[in-house]
Computed example of a mutant assay.
Amino acid sequence: MDKLGALKMFVVTAQLGSFSRAAEQLGKTPSALTKAVNHLEAELGARLFERSTRRILLTEIGRVYLETARLVLQRLDEASEEIEQLQHGLRGSLKITAPLAYGRAFLDQVCDGFLQQYPQISLQVDLCDEFVNLLESGYDLALREGHDDLPGLIARVVGSNRLALCGSPEYLARKGLAVSPQTLDQHEWLLYKHPLLSREFWWAERDGQRLSLAQPTTPRLRSDNYDLLLASALAGRGLLHTPLWSAAPYIADGRLVRVMADYEIDPDSFGPHILAVYPSHRRATAKVVAFIDYIAAFLAVRGLSSLHSFDG
Results as ranks from 00 to 15, higher is better:
295 I>D: 05
225 N>R: 15
109 Q>V: 00
305 S>L: 04
60 E>Q: 14
249 P>Q: 01
160 S>N: 08
218 T>W: 01
9 M>N: 01
150 L>C: 04
122 S>D: 11
144 R>C: 06
17 G>E: 07
22 A>M: 05
296 A>L: 04
298 F>I: 01
3 K>V: 14
197 L>H: 06
179 V>H: 04
241 H>Q: 12
206 R>E: 13
121 I>Q: 06
131 F>N: 09
247 A>C: 08
77 D>I: 07
194 H>L: 11
248 A>F: 07
168 S>A: 14
232 S>R: 12
262 D>G: 05
153 L>P: 09
151 P>G: 10
277 V>D: 03
224 D>M: 06
276 A>D: 10
283 R>Y: 09
2 D>Q: 14
102 Y>K: 00
152 G>H: 11
295 I>R: 02
226 Y>N: 04
138 G>S: 05
270 F>T: 08
159 G>A: 09
156 R>K: 14
20 S>W: 00
20 S>R: 12
259 V>G: 03
287 K>D: 08
231 A>G: 12
265 I>K: 01
48 L>Y: 07
276 A>R: 07
142 A>W: 00
55 R>Q: 15
231 A>K: 13
243 P>N: 11
57 L>I: 07
293 D>M: 06
6 A>I: 03
57 L>C: 02
76 L>R: 13
46 A>F: 04
43 E>C: 01
156 R>N: 06
135 L>W: 10
191 L>Q: 09
213 L>Q: 08
255 R>T: 14
124 Q>H: 13
39 H>R: 15
200 E>H: 15
130 E>V: 14
2 D>I: 10
49 F>P: 02
66 L>T: 07
101 A>W: 07
294 Y>E: 02
260 M>N: 10
191 L>D: 11
87 Q>N: 02
195 P>I: 00
51 R>V: 12
273 H>L: 01
83 I>Y: 08
124 Q>R: 14
10 F>S: 05
249 P>S: 10
274 I>R: 07
171 Y>R: 04
270 F>S: 13
49 F>Q: 09
92 G>Q: 05
103 G>E: 13
75 R>K: 13
124 Q>Y: 11
81 E>C: 00
200 E>C: 06
283 R>G: 10
83 I>N: 01
162 R>S: 15
65 Y>F: 15
153 L>E: 12
253 D>M: 08
229 L>T: 08
204 A>S: 13
238 G>Y: 02
153 L>V: 02
276 A>V: 11
109 Q>Y: 12
40 L>R: 09
224 D>N: 15
107 L>A: 11
118 Y>E: 08
219 P>H: 03
110 V>A: 15
95 K>F: 11
56 I>R: 00
207 D>W: 04
89 G>E: 13
66 L>Y: 10
262 D>L: 04
131 F>I: 09
10 F>M: 07
124 Q>N: 07
260 M>L: 14
128 C>D: 02
69 A>Y: 09
276 A>Y: 00
109 Q>A: 15
178 A>V: 14
309 S>W: 10
